[in-house]
């Protein structure tokens, strides 16, 4: 599998560290209740199909990226910088 880093271009999977579902960007408020934190830390949709997940380009530019890909076919549809994805989510 090769992932398209928005900064470096397409790179081998070996260059990236996998964090998990991009849900990791939506950190709850520190005072949120345990159900919300459970949702964030543990519970997953875990789709068989299209997903968005978070990767760190550790052996490259050091950017966190959100990859849009398919968990069954391993087809990769695209990637954005996590900071842009965050900004977009914040804007609604």
């Amino acid at each position: 599998m090769r992932l398209p880093c928005p900064i470096c271009g397409e790179r081998d999977r070996r260059e990236f560290y996998y964090k998990g579902h991009a849900l990791a960007l939506n950190r709850p408020d520190p005072d949120a209740d345990d159900a919300e934190w459970d949702d964030y830390v543990h519970l997953r949709d875990n789709p068989a199909g299209r997903t968005r997940d978070l990767w760190y380009h550790s052996a490259g530019c050091g950017a966190w990226i959100v990859v849009d890909r398919d968990t069954v076919t391993h087809e990769v549809f695209g990637a954005t910088l996590a900071e842009d994805a965050e900004a977009r989510d914040a804007a609604g």
């Binding site: 998990g20 519970l43 997953r44 875990n46």
Partner: peptide, 18 residues
């Protein structure tokens, strides 16, 4: 490996990643 899909049919999300 299919636990999340079947749980979703029961309206649940599990602490599982496949």
């Amino acid at each position: 490996g299919r636990s999340s899909q079947v749980a979703a049919m029961a309206g649940m999300r599990l602490p599982i990643e496949s």
